[in-house]
Design a binder for these strands. Structure first.
Lengths: 657, 657
DNA sequence: CTGTAGGCCAAGCGCCGACAA
DNA sequence: TTGTCGGCGCTTGGCCTACAG
């Protein structure tokens, strides 16, 4: 079938696959799951699979980035060699290597879901301004009208010519001539997405992400699982995985559906791969990153970390999902109800979907009954409902008081102090966070210290407000830090005199924000920890502030990082914001970290002149800000100081973190 | 893939597959050739095939007539059970049974290759008059204009509505509204053929025969092999079969070609079938009748007959090919150069393509280097070039003298008299003819007498004119007949006094025309032969004269039968004209049969009045006729006496045979 | 008898600004 | 900033006759 395997540029491939998907590097190690492979082929008839281990450690010896000639959808072909000596080797290097190479010069890309107008016959394509600015060659705005022909390449290497014009009242960018032919030939419909990509050499590419078919009988959902908080080896759980009867019948039908992402992997190739893998021979797998099934080759270290956790019922977790329109990532909270193998006959010890779960939100994920441990992130290690909660009041130094609850740990393997807010969590808890998270920038800087971290649960006093509890306590960890710094980044603490509680200085100060370590600049360059894995930073993090905010604007806060400025010491904080769906959520998280009630949060508003130079700043209460924002998912102006089209004396509301 | 196997009406299926293709009946016996199966899948990598006999006798236990959902092309799925006792059972019954059932009420069908105008965007379909007459419901010609909506079903069971109108000057039948949608949806192009079919219940169906792809790298040729002279179990040889390297690479590529007939059978299914067959288990095969590869399930009796022949180098033969435009059948003459297995390693004893051949005509078949014996028909059993020819002059009673040559027989197993023109050919020669031929009408009437037949080679005196030799002697056999009949069918002998040589009356008079026996009416109803196989006729051949001539006009002489009128005794002669490519060729053949030089042939021209009634006839010299005919492949008026639109006093040139 | 060219009419493609979210 | 609507012109589809092979 794929004799004419024309490789796709890897960066373009990743742009099409989704910003979160990253394929394993050559020579890295992954665990191969035949069970997941079968699921990827939409066959759940495990009886046809040969007897093999549930997971097989493999070395990646080759990755081909390809595109389906019929649908333009990207897929990858990986060549794997089973590793016989399953020793615990250090996998840190190739990860960091991966990250650094990825972060150096990530080319610009832009995704848009086609509207009815875009996909209509006889219509053009409405180019979002930022897409025109970042991807297309600059128009000559002095011409009347400003117009140019843009030549783009699709994933198959074919070229398309579009007339790019800037017209209309108000002015907007449009693709006219050539667009309709593209829509027709690619059989695009409203709801499909296209990805514009500008390669480093200036070539412009266009990729296609097909909308999930409706009514085909295949998996469908408004949500698409994604890999938001982990760069690599990341999977998402299949939706409606309980509907095995439907899938069994549908698997072959989907083969015939042109343009469908499902069913491209045949069961016999699964059988062949599993057989070869079980016998230690090299084998190949094909992976469609935009299918709705979890990855079946998962980074080895991620698996090991997840398996080091003592999973048990009652554990709270959250799982990231990419919305169907690819615009943003949402987190879904859930509770482990039990831990049991999905197929005790074939793979009694398999970790695949071993967690039986229940979701907080009704409806959307109700059909996902089980997930794999490496897909979720532990939010709280203590049972939420079953054991009686023991309340513990902690009085802050500030005049804002709130209650903290530290329930008894439900696992006995690790000591857990109840009297000391800053006592240690068990090692494996931190490890889970590390395993499940992977910073996109900064590489080795982000190794975390497994000790000296504390899970801080913010809980309202009323037991009826458990929802509020989960909202505020999601994955919040707090460690003590040098308390002499005055925190006033974007979020200033209600009264300037407020201090964050501090304690023992000899404990290495660390902030864990959503599982992400936050280092002060001092720590970055001067701090030495007792963690043997931690390494000194090789270079200073570049100031990506403007770009990052722009990406936030584009992607709705998805897949971005940001810095936190501690203005008293001008310290950079490196935050992964990819988990945030809105600024609202950001406020919530930050307020949780710093122990400030939302009503007391301030937002720094910068007033700048026509040239974008900062004139003065004011602190705006959070409540005021939220009133002016019309939607939760508001988009701020690009925070860069390049004046651009900023009108004279206009108040520019910059969000600088 | 084929979960939704919607059966096609078998008669419609045959109409789409081509008039010559007939699938084996259930319960009949065939030989299965794994080698041919692999070739059908366009895989020539025999190394992948399991060890199995070269041919496996099987009983057909099921035949499904299906159509490809993508291309509308018909294919068949056969279920076969290997027969362990390979005893020589009589297979005659199911053959005759087959023929009778086929010939009783064969529904009308009509094929037309789409012209540019037919396939053009925005164009209609020009309906040949006979198609409109025989297939479509009768128009009300009194209406102005005569118009109706015709509902037809395609091979997939979907219905299409066409507006059928009779208009224009001169009037013609057209399909307008609805046709363009059909062309677009079926992706028809000029060169594709469509088949209209009228089922016995009155339903009208439309089938599609895709033109062979050009430039796809798959087999391509202006010719398509066909099964003209045998109703059943008939195959055609693959073209360019020597190009195994190309095919090896192309096999999988062709799988991706939508609408291509090639490559629909996968090699693994071949392997599976061959394995099952070799182990005596039931198995299934899929056969695409319009692929360019020979059938791989061949009627057992045909194989046995072919294998009873002592094939050797120098044998002259001919092979039928359907022209690419499906309009007619052409015969290609060739010589056996050697007899050797194509794959001596795997199947040293295989008869598959065992004959290495050379073709008389340059270019067209030069890439077909070997054919299977059952595909060809022996024309002459004596070597053409190698042995020195011994000339024998035979003086005709007519004033036209020509030389006959009867070379020495090169095989010693059968006696061959050189002094007697009418001595017997060996039995197996006649058997080959019988095996390779199968009359479409008349069934048992056409059994031939294996004895008393003589191969008559007409040879020009100059040895440089060997081409002329082959042109005149192709398959001509002449037997003596009762010479008192004056032959003056369409072709009258130059001078009325001319007589065909006659001889012993006790020898059963038979004419073999192109391997087809020609019986006088007397022989039909009164003759008893010494041939134990020959059976008395059950019923008189219906007078199909008008229809037959019409078909000749439609198909350009392809696939038709005709009668020869011996006007002195008003005897019907039943001739298979499917082998003739033009009237030119017909004249050549007939002149050879009756021993008349072409220049002396006369054509009977019938003059009729406005009502079509015959007024008088004149004999026109062949040379005059050929001058007036602008092309070789001229088309005569339908010879029916239905006046129709015949203008007053117009001279209608009827060809009545 | 039928293939092709060309006329003519109408449908719809495709480009446009106007508006509003 | 951008999605959608309606206008409008031009291309193309599609039905027709004329003519010729």
């Amino acid at each position: 079938m794929e004799l004419v395997e024309k490789s796709v540029d890897p960066q373009f491939w990743h742009a099409c696959a989704g910003g979160m998907v990253q394929m394993p590097l050559v020579n890295s190690k992954v665990f191969y799951f035949p069970q997941g492979h079968a699921e990827h082929s939409h066959s759940v008839d495990f009886g046809a699979l040969p007897t093999s281990p549930a997971m097989i450690l493999c070395r990646v010896v080759g990755v081909k980035f390809l595109a389906d000639p019929e649908t333009d959808e990207v897929y990858a072909r990986m060549r794997l060699v089973p590793v016989r000596n399953n020793k615990h080797c250090d996998l840190g290097e190739d990860e960091s290597c991966n990250n650094i190479s990825e972060s150096v010069d990530k080319p610009a890309s832009f995704a848009k879901t086609l509207t009815q107008s875009d996909a209509n016959n006889g219509g053009g394509f409405s180019v979002p301004r930022s897409c025109a600015d970042t991807i297309f060659p600059r128009l000559d705005y002095n011409a009347e009208p400003p117009v140019q022909n843009v030549t783009v390449k699709d994933a198959l290497g074919e070229t398309w010519k579009f007339r790019h014009i800037y017209r209309g009242t108000p002015r907007r960018h449009l693709l006219t001539t050539g667009w309709s032919a593209f829509v027709n030939q690619k059989k695009l419909v409203a709801g499909d997405s296209i990805v514009f990509f500008r390669a480093n050499n200036g070539d412009i590419c266009v990729g296609i992400r097909r909308a999930k078919k409706s009514g085909s009988g295949c998996l469908e959902s408004p949500y698409r699982l994604n890999t938001s908080f982990e760069n690599y080896g990341r999977i998402a759980a299949s939706l409606r995985d309980d509907d095995s009867k439907v899938m069994r019948n549908v698997s072959s039908t989907c083969l015939n559906v042109p343009g469908g992402a499902q069913g491209r992997v045949r069961l016999d190739s699964v059988i062949e791969a599993a057989s070869l893998a079980a016998s230690g021979q090299p084998f190949e797998v094909v992976y469609y990153p935009r299918s709705n099934t979890p990855e079946f080759c998962v980074k080895a270290s991620l698996i090991r970390t997840a398996m080091s956790v003592q999973w048990h019922s009652g554990m709270r977790f959250r799982m990231p999902l990419e919305m169907e329109d690819s615009s943003r990532i949402s987190w879904f909270m859930g509770t482990v109800t039990s831990v049991q193998a999905t197929d005790p006959h074939h793979w009694p010890d398999s970790q695949w979907r071993v967690l039986q779960v229940e979701w907080d939100e009704q409806g959307l994920l109700q059909n996902v009954k089980c997930v794999s441990p490496w897909l979720v992130e532990v939010v709280s290690n203590f049972p939420t409902f079953d054991p009686p909660m023991k309340r513990l009041c902690v009085r802050q130094q500030s005049d804002i008081s709130f209650e903290c609850q530290l329930p008894l740990p439900s696992f006995s393997s690790s000591p857990f102090g109840t009297s000391n807010l800053f006592s240690c969590l068990p090692d494996n808890f931190a490890a889970v966070i590390q395993g499940a998270r992977h910073a996109q920038y900064g590489g080795p800087l982000l190794d975390i210290h497994p000790n000296n971290q504390l899970q801080l649960g913010l809980l309202s006093t009323s037991s009826q407000q458990l929802n509020a509890y989960s909202e505020f306590s999601e994955g919040m960890s707090r460690v003590h830090r040098d308390g002499n710094n005055n925190i006033s980044c974007l979020l200033t603490i209600g009264n300037s005199g407020q201090k964050i509680e501090n304690s023992e200085n000899d404990q290495k100060p660390r902030f864990i924000l959503f599982g992400q370590p936050i280092l002060t600049e001092q720590q970055m360059f001067h701090g030495s920890t007792r963690d043997p894995i931690s390494q000194p930073p090789k270079e200073k993090i570049p100031d990506l502030n403007g770009e990052i905010l722009q990406q936030i604007a584009e992607f709705g806060l998805g897949n971005s990082q940001c810095k936190v400025f501690l203005n008293s010491v001008d310290t950079l904080w490196n935050l992964d914001l990819s988990i945030l769906a809105s600024y609202e959520e950001l406020y919530i998280r930050l307020s949780s970290i710093f122990g400030i009630e939302r009503s007391n949060l301030l937002r720094k508003v910068q007033y700048c002149d026509a040239k974008g130079a900062l004139k003065h700043t004011e602190d705006e209460p959070f409540s005021v800000f939220m009133r002016t924002a019309k939607r939760l998912n508001i988009v701020s102006n690009s925070g860069s100081n390049t004046a651009g089209s900023c009108d004279q004396n206009q108040i520019q509301s910059n969000s600088r973190f």
